[in-house]
Amino acid sequence: MAAAAAAGAGPEMVRGQVFDVGPRYTNLSYIGEGAYGMVCSAYDNVNKVRVAIKKISPFEHQTYCQRTLREIKILLRFRHENIIGINDIIRAPTIEQMKDVYIVQDLMETDLYKLLKTQHLSNDHICYFLYQILRGLKYIHSANVLHRDLKPSNLLLNTTCDLKICDFGLARVADPDHDHTGFLTEYVATRWYRAPEIMLNSKGYTKSIDIWSVGCILAEMLSNRPIFPGKHYLDQLNHILGILGSPSQEDLNCIINLKARNYLLSLPHKNKVPWNRLFPNADSKALDLLDKMLTFNPHKRIEVEQALAHPYLEQYYDPSDEPIAEAPFKFDMELDDLPKEKLKELIFEETARFQPGYRS
């Protein structure tokens, strides 16, 4: 834990890192770190609560700039109880001085990944967590956004079992017609939660990839272990087919990539493993919904509104309290091709509203 900075004593240090967030945020305490930044909790002297502050230093890398800009653009436009918001952003007053960006968010005690390492969940908890994931996802999908990296560590939890989806750095506007060349190379989302079509096709992607990830998360809540822990690309596919069985001819016809289709045709026939054999203690309604989410063919996979209306979630289902976005989200430009200098300018502009004396 960093010592509390005395008023006016300059930035606090946390594990050798400068955290320049005073005077409003003090009493910093280390939480963890990701690929390009550290997260601390801090005391907000204005709202009198502890908050989470993520320090991001992305400006050396085009990919990190892209992810940072995506996350900020999306989260500043989203407003939903099951999606983490941005409360404040701290950065230098000029673009030349801006080396880091500090993002202030609600402090959540833990995440689903940490929880599943230590606790076996009751059916009631599984049901409530799944409902909140789908409630947040309904809003995301209504904005025409794909999260693309749903996994237990991106689901934040607090002691009252509130759940918030975080990390929109890989999110995209849904565009089933656009052929994202190089899709697989830039697709760094965790393999275990990846839909089979991501490994088999490169053309376009749809909201059904997020539903697949939610199915993987439900299976993990039922058993405290990942359902498809593939060691590499082909191993991942083999794990999936080992449980779902061989795809039907109709399902194979959806695979545009001939090499991928021929690979699947070359494999020995596998039978589907019954879900109640894998999860003998699970609620039968939970397994019915799991089956509809972990469907090989993305066109037959359940959609988020149908999933919310499934009998497993009937005690929570309330369409009048499951809000959607006001308007579909649009990125003005494809960020993939922009140089990091341009992305830095866009991050600077996007964060201006939090600067003292800002006038829109």
Rank of each mutant, 00 (worst) to 15 (best):
Q306W: 05
W275D: 10
R225C: 12
M333S: 11
T26Y: 08
H141M: 09
A327V: 10
Q355C: 08
R191A: 05
N123V: 03
T63S: 15
H120F: 02
A327E: 11
Q132P: 11
K342G: 08
F168L: 13
T185H: 06
L343G: 04
L163P: 08
H141E: 07
P58M: 15
P274G: 08
Q236R: 00
D100P: 13
T190K: 05
H299D: 11
N276Y: 14
F296H: 09
N47Y: 15
N262G: 02
T160V: 04
L222E: 09
E322H: 01
K259M: 14
M333T: 00
F59Y: 14
K272V: 08
C166Y: 11
W212R: 14
A219H: 03
V304C: 09
K259I: 12
A307W: 05
G245C: 14
G182F: 09
I89H: 02
S142P: 02
E326H: 01
T94C: 06
A3W: 08
K55C: 12
F183H: 09
N224E: 13
L69P: 11
E350S: 08
D111F: 09
Q119A: 13
T110L: 12
D318M: 07
P247V: 07
D88W: 01
D44A: 13
Q236P: 03
E81C: 03
P11W: 10
K114R: 12
G85F: 12
D106H: 10
M199D: 11
N47S: 12
E33A: 00
A327I: 06
E71V: 13
E349Q: 01
L335I: 05
K117M: 14
I217C: 10
I72K: 08
Y139C: 05
C65A: 12
D179W: 01
Y64E: 12
V173C: 04
P247Q: 11
L289G: 07
L28F: 03
A143G: 09
C161T: 01
D111I: 00
V101M: 15
K330W: 01
H180V: 03
K285P: 10
D210R: 07
L28M: 14
P268G: 02
D251K: 03
Q355I: 05
M333G: 08
N158Y: 13
L267H: 02
K138F: 02
Y193W: 05
I211P: 06
S122W: 04
I103A: 10
M108G: 09
R70P: 00
D291E: 12
F296G: 07
C166V: 03
L69Y: 04
N281W: 02
I198K: 09
C216Q: 04
I84F: 15
A286K: 00
D179H: 09
L264N: 00
D167N: 15
M98N: 02
H269Q: 13
D167F: 07
K292W: 04
L150G: 02
I31F: 14
L155T: 03
C166M: 04
L294Y: 04
S122T: 09
F19D: 09
